[in-house]
Design a protein around this nucleic acid. Sequence first.
DNA 1: ATGTTGTATTCATGCGGCTTTAATGTCGCC
DNA 2: GGCGACATTAAAGCCGCATGAATACAACAT
Lengths: 226, 226
Amino acid sequence: MRLLVIEDEQKVADFVTRGLRAERFAVDVAYDGASGWDMASVSAYDLIILDLMLPGMSGSEILRRLRQAKKDAPVLILTARDRTAEKVEHFEAGADDYLTKPFAFAELLVRVKALLRRGGAARADILRVGDLEMDRRTQQVKRAGKKIDLTSKEYSLLEYLAANAGRVLSRTMIIEHVWDQSFEGLTNIVDVYVRHLRGKVDDGHAAKLIRTVRGVGYSISDEVEA
Amino acid sequence: MRLLVIEDEQKVADFVTRGLRAERFAVDVAYDGASGWDMASVSAYDLIILDLMLPGMSGSEILRRLRQAKKDAPVLILTARDRTAEKVEHFEAGADDYLTKPFAFAELLVRVKALLRRGGAARADILRVGDLEMDRRTQQVKRAGKKIDLTSKEYSLLEYLAANAGRVLSRTMIIEHVWDQSFEGLTNIVDVYVRHLRGKVDDGHAAKLIRTVRGVGYSISDEVEA
DNA sequence: ATGTTGTATTCATGCGGCTTTAATGTCGCC
DNA sequence: GGCGACATTAAAGCCGCATGAATACAACAT
């Protein structure tokens, strides 16, 4: 799950970002309107959290452009309390939800999760691959009924694999979804994390779920090897 | 499918190349304009990805020359964000699509596939030859309903044959489409790979799909031998 | 501040499988 | 039969991947 936060107040941005990362989302931040628009238009985010009062380019403008560009990621608007009059206007412009500052993080989180659930029609709350089970709400992972502890990165990687079970995912795609970087130099970080996952998920089980496709990437599935 | 990437930034070039190779394309890279032009003018590529900002010879110049030389491979332009004004100009000069840096690989891949589909006369997503079936999106191959595992090279070769089912393809043409530039000189590598394919595709089946045409090359078809 | 713990990332090495070469056997054609 | 073209197999080389350990980093407690 990749989120973009567009917010110029450093404090608010950090607060939101940290909280969301703790919930294991991959979060990018833009501190002004122009770069916010750049990032939003380039990458496919699952959700955008957008402050309306921005230097460079206003939040309204970004929202308008996004919808014009047929980007359909849900947008959660942040704004000052005394501006609620503009609320309707922004809903019409394509905002999906609305939060007035100051707000509690818990409140934000509820809405973020609601939007993600609604948005991704196909998004299942529980992912299953063979006897592996991932609960996306509680972030609990079990194999054959036994609970598995994963770190943030491990969880994100496994979730991405499981959400695309059966498909082979290239390292490039994995890096883009699970890490927020694109052009970093050559690194084997994906390999290393796959090893970590195998250690926790596959080791000790006869049926290996995680499969390497040489020259291509990795995939997870419960198909039995020939 | 053979692609050429002309891009001087090492990191971007590596990133793109790696990602595309994982998608089983044969990818050549040129790190400056001059060698890019050389390669593009000599070999037949199915698609060219072209950075505009290049040392040696500018991307615009390469594009202009290509069209003048009646090379009709689709061209996907890469450029910096603040140069979008030149967009129209390049479309008129014969560019087929456009991507501003930085971009997400997923975005690039979508466009590459779109261009290849458009160009290749209604490129089908599923290729069928007799009871052989190739799904180009998932890269799954089946014969008589049974799944077949192929390596990257084997897959590329079979795809090239199947996409031209019924036609006889010479060894030279096969090498040009399936292998990248690192290849030259006399070699029987095509024969060897045809053997690999026969082992996986034809052995154990009464109807042989892969046919040798003496003195010419190979072809795949479900026509019964006379 | 300092140490401690857990996590993220980089690095170096060894192994195995894909790729490629090469050598030999077989077939078709004149 | 003899030549050339293709088939087949074995083996070498190389690249990609797996792996374990070392290092950097952040969070937290003392």
